[in-house]
């Protein structure tokens, strides 16, 4: 555990909780892509199956349970409790265009051709692109609530911090996981355009709105 890994995990946790609280407090999931949230629930489910097979640390187990629990709670709030506020017409990204290629790639390129390992690989690849329905939705409506941009910033920051974590681990532990690193770079790059808008607009007190 190093400082980048820890702050990355906490940033991820902050993102998840910001989103849950935003929906809960406003009693609305307007502007939130339910499809991205379903993909994240799928990511955690397929990645954390090792909860049943191996114990790494109390920290590891607790965080996994919190992530999975919050992911399903978010999906429940969007598709059940506050379904009336869900903006399905603007959430029109075709997720099969992500899930099918990612599924194929995880079968082809993995560390070990075993069910658990392929599912772990699937979750890594899927996480790298799971935010696309949300970014697509923002590009379609041309704007995002400020609290939604804080969520996206924390979520993007988490993977960027993991990149520093992997550099640290490579130098100090000789740890090197090519699949996680490449997917993590892709994931972080997808946020770059958003990071730019966040710094130039949201941090200066303006609402995030895209030029028509």
């Amino acid at each position: 555990m190093n400082i980048f890994r820890l702050t990355g995990d906490l940033s991820h946790l902050a993102a998840i909780i910001i989103l849950l609280l935003k929906i809960w407090k406003s009693r609305s999931c307007a502007g939130i892509s339910g499809k991205s949230q379903i993909l994240f629930a799928l990511v955690f489910t397929t990645r954390y199956l090792d909860l049943f097979t191996s114990f790494i640390s109390l920290y590891n187990t607790c965080m996994k349970l919190i992530y999975i629990g919050c992911a399903y709670a978010t999906v429940y709030l969007i598709y059940a409790k506050f379904r009336a506020t869900y903006d399905g017409n603007h959430d029109s990204f075709r997720v099969e265009f992500l899930v099918v290629p990612v599924g194929g790639l995880s079968v082809l390129i993995n560390h070990d051709f075993s069910p658990l390992e392929i599912l772990w690989t699937f979750s890594i690849y899927l996480e790298s692109v799971a935010i696309l329905p949300q970014l697509f939705m923002i590009s379609k409506t041309g704007e995002a609530e400020t609290i939604t941009t804080h969520y996206l910033f924390c979520l993007g920051l988490y993977r960027a911090l993991y990149l520093f974590n992997w550099i640290w681990r490579f130098y100090f532990e000789g740890f090197f996981d090519m699949i996680a690193i490449v997917a993590g770079v892709v994931q972080t790059v997808l946020y770059c355009d958003f990071f730019y808008l966040y710094v130039t607009k949201v941090l200066k007190g303006k609402k995030l709105s895209l030029p028509a």
Partner: peptide
Amino acid sequence: FDPVMWHDEL
């Protein structure tokens, strides 16, 4: 191959 060694991250 030891998946625990590889997948100790979240």
